[in-house]
């Protein structure tokens, strides 16, 4: 069975009950053609985000989580082949021209990136980088932009904003830089904030402070947040809903509380097992999922995780499991899901 057909099965969008979703991604595919090789980065990803919620997208590197979010923002290079749809308040973002997309960038969807050191222009003052974002949308004069920048710097709790406004990125600590990045992202009151590994480059204390800030801002401003991370523990602590991605597609999707108490997909379980815990026996080995992350240029015909999965049987290698709502609000793609309450280490082989 070809990859195209596989993902047909995975296309139905999970519906999370309640109001109209803010963003509705369905059957998103992104592909890069390089040197005659085809890299299938995202293979039929579907999800919803509601206003005021925080959705965590979890996966290893190469699982397509960053590429899929950049596709939404139109930030992939023009040679990326993107298909599917992403309805944002009734507009399909993926069908917009670059010029039309620019109106939404920053104003409706904003993004905070992983490495605040590299993501801020080193030769521009902090203040200029913020006012630029303020003035990108709407006719704002210099004075008003300055006031707004001050307001934003206070909002993200940057100490001494009047001084910081005139400083350069290298004069700030990593945590402060990420606060500036968040201020930039919030400049035009976006309805959706995508935090792409926004805390990965920070130390643990700062990480928590930035996450707390995001949560607080979400409560105050009602912004929906997509948090992209490889850190399931972080997702468990902060997100409302969690999507686990593997090989460019969703493999499990549930509210955070459900997911962590009733994990069904062996891959998710393997990820959970790899989190160090205090209650674990000291100096015991962390379980490691064997094998390599999937080769995106040549995905297997069956379940892409099957080669690494301890529960895999013949049918897993033959046909990919559909991504379906097996329990209310809980979606997964697996032929032989884990029993609820089984040992956490069970996932990997």
């Amino acid at each position: 069975m070809s990859i195209e057909e596989v993902s047909e099965l995975a296309s139905p969008a999970p519906v999370y009950g309640g109001a109209e979703p803010l963003l509705e991604v369905s059957d998103l595919r992104v592909r890069f053609d390089a040197k005659g090789r085809r890299v299938n980065a995202v293979n039929g990803l579907s999800y919803h985000v509601h206003a005021g919620r925080m959705l965590a997208i979890i996966g290893e590197s190469g699982s397509g989580k960053s590429v899929s979010s950049r596709a939404l923002m139109g930030l992939l290079p023009p040679t990326a082949r993107i298909s599917g749809s992403a309805r944002f308040l009734g507009t399909d973002l993926l069908s917009l021209s670059e010029r039309e997309m620019r109106r939404h960038r920053g104003a409706d969807l904003a993004m905070v990136f992983q490495d605040p050191t590299r993501s801020l222009n080193p030769t521009m003052r902090i203040g200029t980088q913020i006012t630029e974002a303020v003035r990108a949308h709407g006719d704002v004069d210099k004075r008003a932009a300055f006031d707004r920048a001050m307001e934003l710097l206070q909002l993200v709790r940057l100490p001494a904003p009047e001084r910081r406004f005139y400083e350069y990125p290298h004069q700030l600590s990593g945590g402060m830089r990420q606060r500036v990045m968040i201020a930039i992202a919030l400049a035009a009151d976006p309805k959706l904030l995508i935090a792409d590994e926004a805390t990965t480059a920070l130390d643990v204390t700062t990480q928590a402070q930035v996450m707390e800030l995001l949560l607080e801002l979400q409560e105050r401003l009602g912004t929906a947040i997509i948090m992209i991370s490889h850190d399931l523990g972080l997702a468990a602590s902060y997100a409302h809903d969690v999507i686990v991605m593997y090989a460019g597609r969703a493999v499990e999707y549930a509210p955070a509380s459900t997911l962590f108490s009733h994990v069904r997909m062996p891959y998710t379980r393997a990820l959970l097992g790899a989190i160090p815990r205090l209650e674990r026996t000291p100096h015991s080995l962390l379980p490691v999922t064997p094998g390599q992350p999937p080769d995106l240029t040549a995905l297997p015909p069956g379940c892409p995780f099957a080669p690494r999965c301890s529960r895999a049987q013949d049918d897993c290698h033959a046909e990919p499991p559909p991504f379906a709502e097996h329990e209310p609000g809980h979606w997964w793609a697996c032929w032989h899901p884990c029993e609820v309450g089984g040992p956490a280490e069970e996932g990997g082989r």
């Binding site: 930030l75 290079p77 222009n121």
Partner: peptide
């Protein structure tokens, strides 16, 4: 092609001309 702050600038919603002049050319 390679710098993250260019992606940040684009994510703000400013046009390609401004990204080129204000960010890339400046550096």
């Amino acid at each position: 092609r390679g710098e993250d702050y260019i992606v940040t600038a684009r994510a703000k919603g400013i046009g390609p001309g401004q990204v080129l002049l204000r960010h890339a050319f400046r550096n």
